[in-house]
Design a protein around this nucleic acid. Structure first.
Length: 421
DNA sequence: TCTGGGGTCCTAGGACCC
DNA sequence: TCTGGGGTCCTAGGACCC
């Protein structure tokens, strides 16, 4: 049976949502930029904004130069995630195997679904119609024999269209396709291929494989398959796909600095974010990672794999600081710091980790309480307080949200949790 | 025009063990 | 005692994607 895979790709996703919710924006150049500061970048532009040469990834500064009359919006991430979940729900009506590839892209394995819905066209337009009717959002759908071709098809479908690639179309379609349009071929690889005289997928597919492997190693085979339209990778259903391989948070500083005291404070806030997200996933980590980027834009990562698993901010912070203190960057000012964890494993009940030798009942209670507070009052409500002695204590940030003492409040939260509330 | 923040996968070299 | 090869784990960096 011929396998078919669909890629649902939302058109200017974040911008389309903002336009939907504020019709006055329709027909205007709308740009979503996470931060409006000097260092912010554009995450999404409406098609009107693209006419001015704006594109995602561009700095806000440049975008403003090209499109001074554009409407710049910070956007609200929660709204986009909610819409994304609704799209997954719609996709699930058409196929049992749906893989959310990013917030605005979903792969569907359509094998066997064709009979159910009549034709591939019926499925593609069915999904697009449901997204349009129920969410008032435009989307493009690419359908092809595998994931990479589905990706290509969705690009050809844009904007607001459907494109289907059948096996007999593949060769013709790839023949004159510029190599940089292949999924996974970026600027560096394009440059190397061009130097070999390869400019199209057709040329790449015909190129002697010995030369490709000599130049690119194992990637040589991958490149040839890519250019020949071969791809056996499976659509992975949501449940497996949403277990992350790593969790990290990083931040670009307002001003590059080598003030270690300040940098440690920033690292602490990043540690909090990472630890909170780890618990949300029920993840424990064996490897911690510190990322530093210098003023000159050199990025360095420092890893430490531990002989035990960590999931508390206190433990994560000690390891990060241990790495940080080992690094000598005195002459170099830093523009970015980041904290990450990898080597993750997942536990059904992350906070019931009594199997671990260093299990500490008090820490577990503390972590539970902190999560309760964060869910209720937001991420920045509470932080680790004094870290110098190694005896960590939580301390509310700014003033406590309630009139009575934080200690009592935490105790009360734990009690109510125990009662099963 | 000096370049965000979240990820994934791959590679090369070193340490270590058998 | 010296040497070699294979396997595995870890670290650092690179390329790419949204």
């Amino acid at each position: 049976m011929q396998r078919y895979i669909a890629l649902i790709d939302m058109d200017a996703f974040f911008a389309s949502i903002e336009i939907r919710d504020n019709p006055q924006l329709r027909g205007k150049p709308v740009l979503i930029a996470g931060s409006h500061s000097q260092k912010g970048v554009v995450t999404t532009c409406s098609y009107e904004a693209r006419k001015y040469g704006c594109h995602s990834g561009m700095s806000v500064l440049d975008a403003r130069r090209l499109c001074p009359n554009g409407i710049y919006i910070s956007g609200s991430h929660g709204k986009y995630v909610y819409a994304s979940m609704k799209i997954v729900e719609i996709c699930n009506r058409f196929s049992p195997v749906v893989e959310p590839f990013s917030v605005d892209e979903m792969f569907l394995d359509l094998s066997g679904c064709e009979k159910l819905f009549g034709s591939l066209e019926a499925i593609g337009e069915g999904i697009r119609g449901a997204i349009r009717d129920e969410l008032q959002l435009p989307s493009s759908v690419g359908i092809a024999p595998n994931k990479t071709l589905a990706k290509l098809a969705s690009r050809l479908a844009k904007p607001d269209g459907l494109y289907i690639i059948h096996p007999q179309d593949i060769e013709n379609l790839l023949k004159d396709l510029p190599v940089q349009q292949l999924f996974g071929v970026g600027p560096k690889t394009t440059e190397k291929l061009n130097l070999l005289g390869i400019f199209t997928a057709g040329q790449l597919a015909q190129f002697p494989i010995e030369v490709l492997t000599r130049k690119f190693g194992v990637m040589g085979y991958h490149l040839r398959d890519l250019a020949s339209g071969k791809d056996n990778s499976e659509v992975v259903a949501q449940r497996e796909a949403d277990k992350p391989k790593s969790i990290s948070n990083e931040t670009t500083l307002f001003e590059a600095t080598n003030n270690r005291v300040f940098l440690k404070k920033v690292l602490l806030s990043l540690v909090h974010k990472v630890a909170f997200r780890m618990r949300k996933h029920g993840a424990v980590a064996r490897t911690v990672r510190l990322t530093l980027r210098t003023h000159g834009f050199e990025t360095h990562q420092y890893h430490q794999t531990l002989d035990h698993k960590i999931f508390f901010e206190t433990d994560l912070y000690s390891e990060i600081i241990r790495l940080f203190d080992k690094v000598h960057f005195e002459p170099a000012r830093l523009r970015l710091v980041g904290v990450g964890v990898t080597n993750l494993s997942f536990d059904e009940e992350p906070l019931q980790l009594r199997i671990f030798p260093d299990f500490d009942e008090k820490k577990v209670r503390m972590a539970e309480a902190v999560d309760v507070l964060k869910k209720r009052f937001g991420d920045s409500v509470i932080r680790i307080g004094d870290c110098r002695s190694g005896d960590y204590k939580y301390r509310p940030v700014d003033k406590p949200p309630l009139s009575f003492g934080m200690k009592n409040y935490i105790a009360e939260e734990i009690d109510s949790k125990k009662k099963g509330e």
